[in-house]
Lab assay of single mutants.
Amino acid sequence: TTTLTYTDEEEARKAAEELKRRGITFTYTKRGGTWEIRIK
């Protein structure tokens, strides 16, 4: 499992869109002031 952490929502959203485009499965979690993208 790879976890990407972002403090900028815009960056996190761009990363999530890129992963979706590649067909990669991930979970997206907001934790306080950070956003976590966990790639399975």
Rank of each mutant, 00 (worst) to 15 (best):
Y6G: 02
E36A: 02
I37E: 00
K20Q: 11
K40Y: 15
R13E: 07
G32R: 04
R13D: 05
D8E: 07
A15D: 03
K40D: 14
R22K: 11
F26D: 00
T34I: 15
R22S: 05
K20H: 10
K20Y: 09
R22H: 08
W35Q: 01
G32Q: 08
T3I: 15
T27K: 04
L19D: 00
W35Y: 09
I24T: 03
Y28D: 02
T7H: 12
T25Y: 11
A16M: 15
A12Y: 12
A15S: 06
A16N: 02
G23Q: 03
K30P: 06
K20N: 09
E10A: 13
G32V: 05
A16V: 12
W35H: 04
R21W: 04
L4Q: 05
K14W: 06
T27E: 14
I39A: 02
E10K: 13
F26K: 00
I39D: 00
T27R: 03
Y6E: 00
F26N: 01
L19S: 00
T29C: 12
K20T: 14
W35N: 01
A16T: 05
R22A: 11
I39W: 04
T1L: 12
E36G: 01
T27C: 11
I39N: 01
E9V: 05
T2I: 15
I39S: 02
K30R: 08
T29A: 08
T1S: 13
W35T: 03
T34R: 13
G23R: 03
R38P: 00
K30Q: 12
T25L: 14
T34M: 15
E18Q: 09
A15H: 06
T27Q: 07
E18Y: 11
E11D: 10
I24D: 02
A16D: 01
K20W: 11
T3Y: 10
K14I: 07
L4K: 04
D8H: 07
K40L: 15
T5S: 08
D8A: 05
Y28A: 05
T27V: 09
R31Q: 13
T25M: 11
W35D: 01
E36K: 03
E11F: 04
L4C: 15
E17V: 10
A16K: 05
T1F: 14
I39C: 04
T7W: 10
T27P: 00
T3L: 14
I24A: 04
T5Y: 15
T3K: 07
Y28E: 06
T29M: 11
R31F: 11
A15G: 03
E9H: 06
G32S: 06
A15W: 05
R13H: 08
G23T: 02
T25W: 12
T7L: 09
Y6L: 02
W35I: 14
D8F: 05
Y28N: 02
T3F: 10
K40W: 15
R21P: 01
A15F: 10
T27Y: 07
L19W: 02
L19K: 00
A12G: 04
T1G: 12
I37L: 04
E36P: 00
L19P: 00
R31N: 14
T3G: 03
I24Q: 03
T25A: 13
I24W: 04
W35S: 01
T2E: 08
K40I: 15
E36D: 02
T2Q: 11
T27F: 07
E36F: 12
D8L: 08
K20M: 13
E10V: 11
